[in-house]
């Protein structure tokens, strides 16, 4: 259906034009993934995490600044894993630095006071493990729901400005595409720290997903 090199590369329509059932299906996938993944986090953080309904969005690679609404320089900890197998895509976990600090205070309490300017190797290692578990829980729940076999790569990690993280992902993994489909899960903790879980299925997988769920295009 979509070929690289076409004028209208990937998802030639906007979210408004997207089939409602497809959009709901993607939201459901986001819910299922997050539901499973946050179980472990709630236990660790011992507070209530507020899950919003996932947003289905198209990220235009040239409009990342707009997408981020002035937050390009926010420092975030990001973990990225590739999903390969019956469906392919990328999972990108983006954690505000404040939230990462909160998590570290719970899992490595003896490290107080935490140096808020940079993390130690031990701290990065601990958060990396957590991200690994979180991404793994998310993906396995989604894979089970869709009844597909997938592998998850070890996460690549980056602690830096949000704009640079997103633009680098777009450029390194999606340079052929004008628009990237994002299932955007947003979580807020009690202290109003937040993180995003982006699930980015590629178009071939998008079609496969809809096929698996028995939702075809008209």
């Amino acid at each position: 259906m979509y070929n690289k090199g076409d004028d209208d590369v990937s998802f030639g329509y906007s979210v408004e034009e997207m089939n409602e059932m497809h959009k709901s299906a993607l939201q459901e996938i986001g819910n299922i993934g997050m539901g499973n993944a946050t179980k472990s986090l709630t236990f660790i953080l011992d507070n209530n995490l507020k899950l919003d309904i996932p947003l289905v969005q198209f990220l235009e690679t040239d409009s990342i600044s707009e997408f981020l609404g002035g937050k390009e320089e926010y420092v975030v900890l990001s973990a990225l894993s590739s999903i390969t197998g019956e469906i392919n895509g990328t999972v990108l976990l983006i954690i505000r630095k404040g939230f990462a600090v909160e998590i570290l205070q719970k899992i490595l309490p003896e490290d107080n006071p935490l140096d808020e300017t940079s993390f130690t190797e031990m701290q990065i290692s601990a958060i990396n493990e957590l991200c690994n578990i979180f991404i793994g829980s998310y993906t396995s729940a989604v894979a089970t729901f869709l009844d597909v076999d997938v592998k998850i790569s070890l996460p690549y990690v980056c602690i830096d400005m949000l704009g640079a993280v997103l633009s680098s992902v777009a450029v390194e993994l999606y340079s052929y595409y004008d628009k990237i489909l994002v299932v955007n899960n947003y979580i807020e903790s009690e202290t109003e720290n937040a993180f995003h879980m982006f699930y980015l299925p590629d178009e071939a997988s998008y079609e496969k997903i809809m096929l698996k769920l028995g939702i075809q295009n008209e």
Binding site: L80, I124, S125, N128, E129, L154, P155, Y156, V157, C158, D160, A164, V165, S168, V171, E172, L173, S175
Partner: peptide, 21 residues
Amino acid sequence: MFKLVNSRNNNSANSDLNKIG
């Protein structure tokens, strides 16, 4: 931008993810 953490054999520089820079 991206690195593999806890990897004995840190091939981040050669990965698919870090070519464009």
